[in-house]
């Protein structure tokens, strides 16, 4: 870990002020800014220990929980403050009842200790677990060191992505909660030096494309303050299915966040998020379109799964992942349709 200055912000205004410096503004990406916000620290401290992240200033924003630590559910939808801890959101009665896919995505992630620590805002910004990204002695990592290449393409890459990858990067987005947010069409509240803005959660993360080091559409110094998930007739019939080698405490090999609004057996509206095998939190509009207006059957679920993975690109060990992803989605859809609500 490189030396840094530790600052404790007592409110949002102070946090933003501490993070707004000329060098910060000039950073190539939010993750590369010399000032980083510290909440749960479960990603940041880890990456600093292994020398992947080298911020010069840490701004402790935990005291902002008073401003941004609320969970509120009403007719319009669900509001989650960015400093709500994963465990608290997962256990909230309204989330459990009305947004099971969100509760499950949180509940199935990490471990009880990590869920007690990690903030929702930090969780969605969790960075890839690609081993070639995390080990700084590999020279080739376009995400860590732009233009250096990608050691993962021909390497040990079983855990990496097949959706949204580019010829520069096949790192996967490792989280769960974000896939549920993407599926349910959530929005994210952002505060920055230039004020407040709201963006679609789907737009928070960027595809790697030519610039895998950028990762999000946050400007340096911007702070996520909360999430809103719109209400909809599909949120109650929703679930998060996570497939992995271990029963618990492991990142997904494949996951699906699905929500269905059914009219009899016919799909009025479907929401499909995918995880574990995508470059960013993934919403499959293709799968949703394939389901809309169709009876939810094994065949239509399979067709949706085919649509979701039509553009999958595999490298070496990821060859099995489109098939695992399809099966995961089919299973999730059928299970969701069978939910008693």
């Amino acid at each position: 870990m490189r030396p840094f200055r530790y600052e404790h912000a007592t409110d949002r205004a102070q946090a933003l002020q501490l993070a707004t410096t000329p060098t910060a503004a000039a950073a190539a990406a939010h993750v590369a800014a010399p000032v980083q916000y510290l909440a749960g620290g479960t990603t940041l401290i880890d990456l600093m220990k292994i020398d992947v992240m080298r911020p010069e200033v840490l701004v402790d924003i935990n005291a902002l929980a008073g401003q941004h630590g609320e969970i509120r559910a009403d007719d319009a939808g669900l509001r989650l403050g960015a400093l709500v801890r994963m465990a608290d959101a997962a256990a909230h009665p309204a989330v459990l009842r009305d947004y099971p896919a969100i509760a499950q995505s949180l509940q199935l992630a990490a471990s009880p200790q990590l869920r007690n620590m990690a903030s929702l805002g930090g969780n969605v910004l969790q960075r890839t677990r690609c081993n070639y990204f995390r080990d700084v002695t590999y020279a080739a990592c376009n995400k860590r060191s732009p233009g250096s290449g990608c050691a993962a393409m021909e390497g040990v890459n079983r855990r990496l992505a097949v959706l949204g990858v580019s010829d520069r990067c096949i790192a996967n987005y490792p989280g769960d909660f974000a896939n549920a947010l993407a599926a349910l069409g959530a929005a994210v509240d952002v505060e920055g030096p230039k004020g407040r803005r709201v963006m679609a959660f789907e737009d928070l993360h960027r595809l790697p494309g030519e610039t895998p080091h950028v990762e999000t559409n946050l400007a340096p110094g911007e702070l996520i303050t909360g999430f809103s998930v719109p209400a909809g007739p599909w949120t109650r019939r929703s679930l998060y299915l996570k497939i992995r080698d271990r029963q618990s405490y492991e990142f997904a090999l494949a996951s699906a966040a699905v929500a269905l609004d059914l009219d009899g057996g016919v799909v009025r509206e479907a929401r499909v998020g995918l995880g574990g095998l995508s470059a960013k939190p993934w919403r499959s509009h293709e799968a949703e379109a394939a389901l809309r207006g169709k009876p939810l059957t094994e065949a239509s679920a399979q067709a949706a799964a085919e649509a979701a993975f039509a553009k999958a690109v595999v490298h070496g060990e990821t060859r099995f992942k489109p098939e695992l992803g399809r099966r995961t989605l089919v299973r999730a859809l059928l299970q969701c349709a069978a939910m008693e609500i």
């Binding site: 479960t42 402790d60 990590l114 007690n116």
Partner: peptide, 19 residues
């Protein structure tokens, strides 16, 4: 390294003492 912080279990290895 699990300890209780304000009664909740957390990992001491990813917690800065300063916080």
């Amino acid at each position: 390294c699990t300890v209780h912080l304000e009664g909740r279990r957390v990992l001491a290895c990813l917690t800065l003492a300063a916080t």
